[in-house]
């Protein structure tokens, strides 16, 4: 359990590390080029990991709807946007606003899917996040 906690926190740290590194690359190249290298290097690393560990292409993997493959191209825009933003508004602002946007849009998506969520809690969460976003603008 301690190891799981460590892993989960480390995963968060690594999200920040890659955004910081991609941000540095984009300063010398461009956000889209940084995003390209991020995806290519990640693809090579994951291919290597899959070949070592096995199970890279599990049975039934290609039965997913074609729309599901749009996650990759969306990710390209996501990484490029993060690389562009981080030198401009800083790591803390980038992390907080992306997290805030993810949470609020997640709540909205869940409303459309009518997935289970405790509505008063998620609504209060959205209000707190929006208040925080407004606060980043005030002196």
């Amino acid at each position: 359990m301690t190891l799981s906690i460590l892993f989960a926190a480390l995963a968060g740290v690594l999200v920040g590390v890659s955004r910081q590194i991609n941000g540095r690359l984009s300063l010398s190249t461009s956000p889209l080029i940084a995003s390209f290298w991020n995806h290519l290097v990640g693809f090579v690393a994951l291919t290597a990991a899959g070949l070592v560990a096995g199970g890279l292409i599990p049975p039934g993997a290609f039965e997913a709807p074609w729309l599901a493959y749009f996650g990759g191209p969306i990710g390209v825009v996501f990484v490029a946007a993060g690389s562009w933003l981080i030198p401009r508004i800083g790591a803390v602002n980038t992390a907080l606003l992306v997290i805030g946007g993810q949470m609020v849009s997640g709540v909205i998506l869940d409303l459309f899917r009518s997935a289970s969520q405790t509505l008063w809690a998620s609504s209060l969460g959205v209000i707190l996040i929006l208040a925080g976003v407004v606060l980043t603008r005030r002196r």
Partner: peptide, 11 residues
Amino acid sequence: AFGTGGLLTLM
């Protein structure tokens, strides 16, 4: 940045 978070949800 806030909109980018929405992209992340889709992804």
